[in-house]
């Protein structure tokens, strides 16, 4: 069950049409390290987490990622809602325009469509949490790259906010991994898989 709240987690108010910028930041909607991918990763992994509190953390972060997806989509929408055909042509947005007009569709900056191939749900707590740590770092790097390239402060401010969240989430996944390690065999964390070998020692 989810409940919608009719507001953005961080305000987006972009006054200058710029399809070129939209084409770059859309990567954080449907790209390999985007918010949709992040959300689906965490919301998929949570079911089989051996620690209930880690499953809960994945639910909460996966939910926040949906709010981040909405922020990115709001930015793409506002950057393109008033574009004319010349804007689309000169900004290199012409291919997207042909396929989607000004509709919002999950793809990477490279135009590759959103795909579940970009994330894993491996059924092993240490493996999945290690992937989650890496996922937050990859997303941070994307935001770093976007911040080097984009100058409009109305676009930069939400990107800075989203970047900061990646670092906080990294910290929380690190803590979740520590909590999981506490419950494993301290001499050998890889002696069994706590998500599958349920009859092995697991307090």
């Amino acid at each position: 069950m989810w409940i919608y709240e009719k507001r953005l987690q961080y305000p987006v108010k972009i006054t200058k049409t710029c399809p070129k910028t939209a084409q770059l930041i859309i990567s954080q909607y449907g790209g390999p390290d985007g918010e949709l991918s992040a959300s689906m990763r965490y919301l998929s992994q949570r079911y089989t987490m051996p620690l209930k509190t880690v499953g809960g953390l994945l639910t909460d972060i996966g939910t926040e990622e949906l709010a981040h997806m909405e922020i990115i989509c709001a930015m793409v929408y506002q950057l393109t809602k008033n574009m004319d055909i010349e804007d689309a042509r000169t900004a290199g947005f012409d291919a997207y325009y042909i396929d989607h007009t000004a509709g919002i569709w999950p793809q990477a900056a490279s135009s590759m469509p959103f795909t579940a191939k970009e994330f894993q749900s491996k059924g092993d707590a240490v493996t999945d949490l290690t992937e989650d740590l890496a996922a937050e770092q990859k997303a941070r790097t994307v935001y770093d790259n976007l911040l080097r390239m984009i100058e409009d402060p109305e676009v930069r401010e939400p990107l800075k906010f989203l970047r900061a969240r990646e670092i906080v989430h990294f910290q929380r996944f690190g803590e979740a991994l520590e909590k999981t390690k506490e419950k494993l065999n301290g001499n050998n964390f890889y002696y069994f898989n706590p998500e599958f070998d349920k009859n092995m020692v697991w307090e």
Binding site: Y143, R148, K160, L162, R163, A164, R165, I167
Partner: peptide, 15 residues
């Protein structure tokens, strides 16, 4: 800042 925690505020130079 994107976080309430000062210890987790680690900004990027280009930002």
């Amino acid at each position: 800042t994107g976080t309430v925690f000062k210890d987790l505020d680690l900004p990027f130079f280009a930002a």
